[in-house]
Write a protein that binds this DNA or RNA. Sequence first.
DNA 1: GTCGCTATTTATCGATTGAAAAATAAACCG
DNA 2: CGGTTTATTTTTCAATCGATAAATAGCGAC
Lengths: 223, 223
Amino acid sequence: MVRDLNEISPKEPGQPLQRRKRMASEERKEEFLTKAIEFFAKEGFESSTRELARQLGVTQPLLYRYFPSKSDLISQVYDRVYVQRWRDEWADLITDRSRPIRDRLVAFYLAYTDVVFKDEWMRIFLFSGLKGVDINRRYMKLVRARILTPIVREVRRDAGLSDLEPTDEEIEFAWITHGGIFYYGVRTLIYEASVLNNRNFVIESSIDAFLKQIDQVRTKASS
Amino acid sequence: MVRDLNEISPKEPGQPLQRRKRMASEERKEEFLTKAIEFFAKEGFESSTRELARQLGVTQPLLYRYFPSKSDLISQVYDRVYVQRWRDEWADLITDRSRPIRDRLVAFYLAYTDVVFKDEWMRIFLFSGLKGVDINRRYMKLVRARILTPIVREVRRDAGLSDLEPTDEEIEFAWITHGGIFYYGVRTLIYEASVLNNRNFVIESSIDAFLKQIDQVRTKASS
DNA sequence: GTCGCTATTTATCGATTGAAAAATAAACCG
DNA sequence: CGGTTTATTTTTCAATCGATAAATAGCGAC
């Protein structure tokens, strides 16, 4: 029996009527991946492939033509969020010695939070962190190596020190400052519990407090 | 057919042999709830009641004698973690005017992190935050009302100000400081990515930075 | 037009899920 | 010992899960 696919009222009323739309393989995969990021960010990685397919307006087995398994799809979501949204230019903002150190740090955190203060990014980061996936820990190491260490080195240089090698205390204090800014994003985007909608204020205050305290942190470390 | 329950080698070898142990209803529920906190903290709330029962050494339907549904069990887990672990004495540490303000804030955060820097507490907080449950937002309001607002008021008083009413900027900056400390716990316990295992250093540096910056925050707000 | 490729749907499988109902037995009382 | 209570297990169900295989149809080539 031949079914009329353009039939307006399908047999199952709950089902969205499916008009087949053939898409080029590449852009279809792109569409799936983009939606998967949004979907898993909102619902968590335990959510079903059927629900994802439903929101895409396709059937669930079609996903398996583009991704061999659910966990493979999730891996590609991680890659999109963690790897592809990292900007190598961030390091340049920190080390641009033509500008005062405060300006550089503020400029960096404005650029950085432009990327990570997104609902999708934040939620996927938090979900994957709780799952203990490897990519999360690698991301933390990347932040330390490419952001925090350069920050501390530049601040040391700005203070006229010849030895630029950061101590553990300095790195930890840079982490704390970083965490304070990051957690503002979590409060704003996830918990909807921020008081002030002013990213500039948050970043400037945090950087100023960091710069005021870092000398003492350094002194304590050497004592 | 009568089965011998004391049989040493049961028919299904994978099954842990179940010797019925009748427990008083109250302590059984207590046992279930305690284990449920640990279990859901580790595995997430999407994990199955069967696996929880397996770890408890009982059958899955027995859980439903003590909790009407899975979501009810989860609610009671929330209550245990959020409500029952809150300490009213924390506020007293902040407002104890016989001590210098710095000592009070350090003492408070040592006491506070004694409770929340626990794997269970942290993970359940993060899981429930991502699920957007109401109790999470209520907790954030509690922190603001019972911790951050008193802190800012005491700092204002210490600075000799007559008006103790906090501005939004002050509360937000207190949140940032709080978040920096909190995020240290997340890094240590969840991401296993802390540099320094020294809670005293983290709290003292954070409080010192806070106290050095708060005047400027207050000035900017009034301008 | 019609033929071939393949994007898409249909149908289905085995495992797992939360939950209810019924059967069983441990503990207490007389 | 016999009887009652109820904690616990056994059995079972309907939904839902990730995944596979087969059927179907859109679309470009000729």
